[in-house]
Amino acid sequence: MRYEAPDSIEGAVGLLARTPGACHVLAGGTDLLVRLRSETLEPETILDIKRIPGMHEITPEDGGWRIGAAVSGAQINEHDGLCADWPGVAEAVGLIGSTQIQGRATLAGNLCNASPAADSVPAMVAAGALARIAGPDGTRDVPVAEVPTGPGKTSLDTGEFIASIFLPARPERSGDAYLRFIPRTEMDIAVVGCAVSLTLDADSTVDSARVALGAVGPTVVEVETAAEALVGTQVREGAQQQLATVCSAAARPIDDKRGTEHFRTHVAGVLARRAAAIAYARAKGDRA
């Protein structure tokens, strides 16, 4: 195995495109090193992106936030501006692992690891986040939802990697939230995850919404019928019930020892209504 740590995006792309044999990007390493150790992965080259300038930075851009691909979960949760704008994304990434894991784990790594249960991914999808992909032909911006294509698989081409994640400007009267169900209180993999992001009009009625579910299918699921259930309402009981019904209907979970299909389907609806209530309260200016 070789270890490369280029100091530019171009250098990284060149190595990714030209290196013979399997070349894997290393960000926080909290997935990659576990797989190296278990020998489910035997790369010829590990490409560490952490020495590329800008990878560790969170920068304001067009009213939103550009988050470098090496920014850790801990760094995100220490950033007041970002947390104020996107509390749901911050709480989702904050749920990943322990304090030690938080010191390293990245959004792009969580996305590219392509686990159906990845916690930050539904929150990024609900937020309308874009992944900036660097490759041999320059950069392109794609919606986060288009990156994972199945468990462990992404739509990235040879020579490409994610240079940053962009969270767009947060409109006035907006809020987002993420909830997951795990059998314990900490350090576990989501049985179901749900993120809701919504924007209200001046009289506190939902004007637009995005709802995404994790761990109930091979990839994250954006539930359009759930957005429809919320728009035009004030997220009261009837709307919440309708939201729960359509989210349960959209769930296509597996059945395993961590949760039966029936249970996961039900919980998808329960989490959706709870997350919607939190997002709604945040959108009204309640920072709880």
Binding site: L26, T30, S72, Q100, I101
Partner: peptide
């Protein structure tokens, strides 16, 4: 594999698992 924390060290002031870092 990052689960137990017995390998904890700090790197540039950040708590990490030294088993999950090259």
């Amino acid at each position: 594999t990052g689960d137990c924390g017995a390998c904890s060290v700090t790197v540039d002031g950040r708590l990490v698992c030294s088993c999950l870092m090259l």
